[in-house]
Simulated assay, not measured.
Amino acid sequence: MEEKLIQKIQRSDRPFLVAGPCSAESAEQMEMVARDIALNTHAQVLRAGIWKPRTRPDSFEGVGQIGLPWLVEAAKNNGLLSTTEVANAKHVELILKAGVDIAWIGARTTVNPFAVQEIADALKGSGIPVMVKNPINPDLNLWIGAFERLEKAGLTDLAGIHRGFSVYNNPRYRNQPNWEIPIALKEERPDLPIICDPSHISGKRENLLPIAQKAMDLNFEGLIIETHPNPEKAWSDARQQVTPTALREMLSQLTLRRELISEDAQNKMLLMRDKISGLDDKIFELLTARMLISEEIGVFKRDNDITILQQEHWKKMIATRLSKATDLNLSEAFVREFMDALHQESIRHQTKVMNPNLGD
């Protein structure tokens, strides 16, 4: 029986590596990049976009069907598997006919259950491995739903691709990583390997390494990196692609840490975790005490016809806490999110007191 993609990922030396250009441009380009990837890295899979879902209609949208044999033959010639993105049933029909080894579903498609269902129906009975990118918006259930639709169609050789989430005008990322989403996917579906896509998260080749390192530190199984023989002249996404030799250098700088540790190390970590657990107990005890006071305030507001939301007071509270974040060695983003959550829970408690018949 042929080994599944999941098995290849699980038994490979981390990271399992998928590499290749954003777009297939010519047979020569694909052969060159496949050869150089095979020579310079431990990549197992050659990727290339055949159809490119672009934001603006006048952008390069891929060479189309003529590029499929370029991808398949370049991969086979260099001992690699091949993969490309599919967005509809016609794409599925063409990649299966061309002999592409692995399909992937892109972020713009994952967000649409109708499109995912169409692809699942078209793939039914093929047994082809499928990698599913997270949807463009941070919705864990949409991502899980895509896997479930494929599984209902009999496709069980699946992996996730974390490529980040669309945001407007972020100065650091092309797509915000929102690491909590793939971590939640691991919690919900520990059977699914996750491959990180630093190229689409960063949008800039110089930022690939820290993102790839974080993915490895979070115990992701693999990486998918856009790799081009001449990135500056790439027909799409030139800014985020690297040469095969640059990819080799980047991979050499990754620190791969272990998940399993010695019994002695486990015992030492257990002592530290016990300390954290004790502190967590105290934190929740303090939160409970705080909410009891919030309920007292709710009674006072109810009896004096005062609104729950006191905007000026809230603004002062936020400003005070944010001003102390650095001194406390906490990020402003964490402090803001924590205070927002605290405020919402306080509002919930006061609402319960002031309007007991309205529920939460």
Score class of each variant (00 low, 15 high):
Phe60Asn: 01
Glu312His: 14
Glu337Met: 15
Ala74Gln: 05
Gly164Lys: 10
Arg257Trp: 02
Gln10Met: 15
Gln65Ile: 05
Lys152Asn: 04
Leu223Tyr: 12
Glu188Pro: 00
Ile50Asp: 14
Gln253Pro: 02
Lys133Gly: 05
Leu292Cys: 01
Gly49Gln: 09
Tyr173Ser: 04
Pro198Met: 02
Glu118Gly: 08
Pro135Ala: 03
Arg174Phe: 09
Asn267Asp: 02
Met30Lys: 03
Ser262Gln: 00
Glu232Tyr: 07
Asn304Phe: 00
Phe284Glu: 14
Asn170Ala: 08
Gly49Ala: 12
Gln65Asp: 04
Lys275Ala: 07
Ala43Met: 02
Met317Asp: 11
Arg258Leu: 13
Phe16Asp: 02
Leu223Pro: 04
Ile95Pro: 14
Arg47Trp: 07
Ala319Phe: 07
Ala238Gln: 11
Leu142Ser: 10
Phe16Val: 07
Asn137Gln: 13
Asp36Gly: 01
Asp139Glu: 03
Lys352Met: 10
Leu256Ala: 04
Gln44Trp: 08
Phe147Arg: 01
Lys4Ala: 00
Ile136Gln: 13
Asn169Thr: 14
Asn169Trp: 09
Ile6Thr: 11
Gly154Met: 10
Pro190Glu: 01
Ile318Pro: 07
Ser126Cys: 00
Pro182Glu: 10
Ile297Cys: 01
Pro113Asn: 04
Val242Asp: 09
Ser166Asn: 07
Lys315Tyr: 06
Lys76Met: 08
Thr243His: 14
Glu187Lys: 03
Leu209Gly: 00
Glu332Lys: 12
Glu249Cys: 00
Gly106Cys: 08
Pro177Asn: 00
Asn169Pro: 08
Glu180Tyr: 01
Arg56Asn: 12
Arg47Pro: 11
Lys275Val: 12
Ile105Asp: 03
Ile318Asn: 07
Asn178Ser: 11
